[in-house]
Structures are given as structure tokens and as C-alpha cells.
Design a binder for these strands. Structure first.
Length: 315
DNA sequence: CGTTTTTGACCAGCGC
DNA sequence: GCGCTGGTCAAAAACG
């Protein structure tokens, strides 16, 4: 993913980094300074500051902190609203396209336009894409499967068809399909016995180093890795060991891809998923924002001021 | 010994 | 109806 696609979340906070508490003992002050300086923070002038100035500064930083929190809330709200709109739109679109007589394979072919590219970072971060409800064959009609497609770049020499996505999968079949010489692997979610999610993984015809993972259905449980992290007693989970490159060449101009596979359907009984199963896209967004913020000198200065202010107040 | 993977067989949808 | 194809099953093998 090109850096040019990154969202500029830089906040012009106009913080003056110079301000630091004056009444602090010199030893503590120097300690803080040296630590911050070792972190790449600018060393600031601490001379001739009055207490009132510092209190004012602290108030201002607190207010900005509050404002940032509010902005983040707004961003999250906007995201949820946008996602709901997208879901609504796609559902309406699907109702138009899928005729009552459409069958299994037609649903798959109509699914081809719901693809999206994603980048991976050593297989740990990934986002998926658009999804689409499909008309399944009779015995699967009870499952209104949501289908999404995920592209994962791996080592071209790696022949395994493992996509590390935080869930535990059991392979139940492999087939060589007509349009692709590379075999397609079929996986079922094995973390929860009742989980209906299936996954197909196949190498891309165009680029053998790209794995195409197609997900069907929605997980009715949190991610295995997250369950482990929270419970601390989960058994070892095979998440795959595919070394993925951090970048994925994409012609898609979309800067952020949405993971709607884990979106909570409004009328779905599975919507009562734990929060741990939240979409990964916000995480991507958060990472971008975090990166942007941490590289923003203004923000860093504000952070330094806030931290040092707190440290010094405690002393 | 329990779990997972492999792999050939089987089934169902689709086009002709 | 027949052949092709994708998807699933299930027994055997492999693995920890």
C-alpha cells in the first residue's frame, strides 16, 4: 500500500514545546529531559516559567486531550454510520441482482466483483473487503453467508495455502480447479464447532505469490488469538506461518480497505459477538492515525508537555 | 491416542 | 441425459 494513500491525520495543535514545570528539582528535571531527549524529543527550555503559565498550559493540554478524544469518537461514529450505509447499499444491490432462480454457482460468479486487495504485515494485520450475501444451495440455505475475498501476498516459493487471520481452521479438502493450475484448499473454522465459516484459499493466477482467501459466513465467536490473549488458557492455535511481505501492489486507489466479514449484522443472531471480534479496519485506521500522530512534532511536543507535567506534578 | 491433513470418491449444479 | 466442474465427505495417513 502506497504511503500516498495514507490519511493525513495530522493535527495542528500549535503546542509550544518549551513549557515545563519550573519548580521541579534540577535532578528530576534533567532526568526527564534526558529520557525524553533519548526518545528523540526536542530538548526544551525550562527557564523563566511561572506556575500560572504552567497551569494554563496544563489546562490547555487537557482541553486538547479531551478534544482529541471527542474527535476520535466522532471518527468512530462516522465509520460505523458509513459502514451501515455500505451494508444497506450492498444488500439492496444484492436483492436486485440475485434472481429467485439463481443457484449456487451463479452466486459465486456474481461474487467476483466484490473483491478487494489487502496488505499484510508479516501476516499479522490484514483487512478484508466487501462482502455479499449469496444464495446457497438448499442444505445451506439456513446460512445467509457473507462472502468476502482477501488477498495476501506471500513468498512465491511458499507452497502452503495458509492465511494467517487470527482464526483456527481445519482443512477438509483440496481441489485443482479448471481456471487455475494451483490447487484450491478448503477450510472450516474449527475453533468453535458451531461456527459456520468456511474459507477457500488459492493462489492467484496472475501472481503466484498472492493468496486469494475467500471467506463465507460470519464467525460466531471471537478470534482464536484474542481468546487466547484474554483467557490465557487457550490451547496453542495454529495461525499459520506464512511469511508475508509487508506490501501488496495494488491498483486500487482506496486507501483503507474495510473488513465487513466481521461486521455485526443488524438482524443477525450472531450479532451478539464479543467486542473482541471487532473489525480490523479500525485497527488499520488507528495505526495510521497513531503513526501520523507520533510523527507529528506538534503532537509529540504536546505529549512531552503532558507527560512531563504529570511526572513533575507527582513529585 | 487424539487431532489434523491428505486424497480419492461422491454429489449436485450447470451447460450443451 | 451426459459430461464437466466445484464443493464436500470420509477413510487413511501423518503428526504431536
Amino acid at each position: 500500500m502506497a504511503c500516498s494513500s495514507w490519511i493525513n491525520t495530522s493535527l495542528d495543535l500549535n503546542i509550544n514545546p518549551r513549557r515545563v514545570h519550573e519548580e521541579v528539582p534540577v535532578s528530576i528535571e534533567k532526568e526527564v529531559e534526558s529520557k525524553l531527549f533519548s526518545l528523540g524529543m526536542p530538548k526544551f527550555n525550562v527557564e523563566e516559567e511561572s506556575t500560572s503559565d504552567l497551569e494554563e498550559e496544563l489546562k490547555r493540554v487537557t482541553a486538547e486531550n479531551k478534544k482529541l478524544s471527542e474527535m476520535l469518537s466522532v471518527v468512530c461514529e462516522n465509520y460505523n454510520t458509513l459502514r451501515n450505509h455500505l451494508m444497506e447499499y450492498m444488500r439492496k444491490n444484492n436483492e436486485k441482482e440475485v434472481s429467485p432462480t439463481s443457484k449456487k454457482r451463479k452466486s459465486e460468479s456474481s461474487n467476483n466483483n466484490s473483491t478487494c486487495l489487502m496488505g499484510t504485515n508479516n501476516g499479522n494485520s490484514e483487512s478484508s473487503s466487501t462482502d455479499e450475501e449469496s444464495c446457497k444451495k438448499p442444505r445451506e440455505e439456513t446460512i445467509k453467508a457473507k462472502i468476502s475475498r482477501v488477498y495476501v501476498r506471500t513468498e512465491a516459493s511458499d507452497t502452503s495455502l495458509i492465511v494467517k487471520d487470527g482464526y483456527q481452521w481445519r482443512k477438509y479438502g483440496q481441489k485443482v480447479t479448471r481456471d487455475n493450475p494451483c490447487p484450491r484448499a478448503y477450510f472450516k473454522c474449527s475453533f468453535a464447532p458451531s461456527c459456520p465459516v468456511k474459507k477457500k484459499v488459492q493462489r492467484s493466477v496472475d501472481d503466484q505469490s498472492v493468496l486469494v482467501a475467500t471467506y463465507e459466513g460470519e464467525h460466531n465467536h471471537p478470534q482464536a488469538s484474542q481468546m487466547e490473549a484474554t483467557s490465557g488458557s487457550g490451547r496453542s492455535v495454529a495461525l499459520g506461518s506464512v511469511p508475508c511481505s509487508a506490501s501488496l501492489t495494488s491498483s486500487t486507489p482506496t486507501p483503507v480497505t474495510l473488513d465487513l466479514t466481521k461486521s455485526k449484522g443488524s438482524n443477525d443472531s450472531k450479532s451478539t459477538k464479543p467486542k473482541a471480534d471487532s473489525p480490523k479496519v479500525p485497527q488499520v485506521l488507528v495505526e495510521q492515525m497513531a503513526t501520523s500522530l507520533t510523527t507529528d512534532p506538534n503532537f509529540r511536543a504536546a505529549l512531552v508537555a503532558a507527560i512531563s507535567g504529570r511526572l513533575l506534578h507527582k513529585n
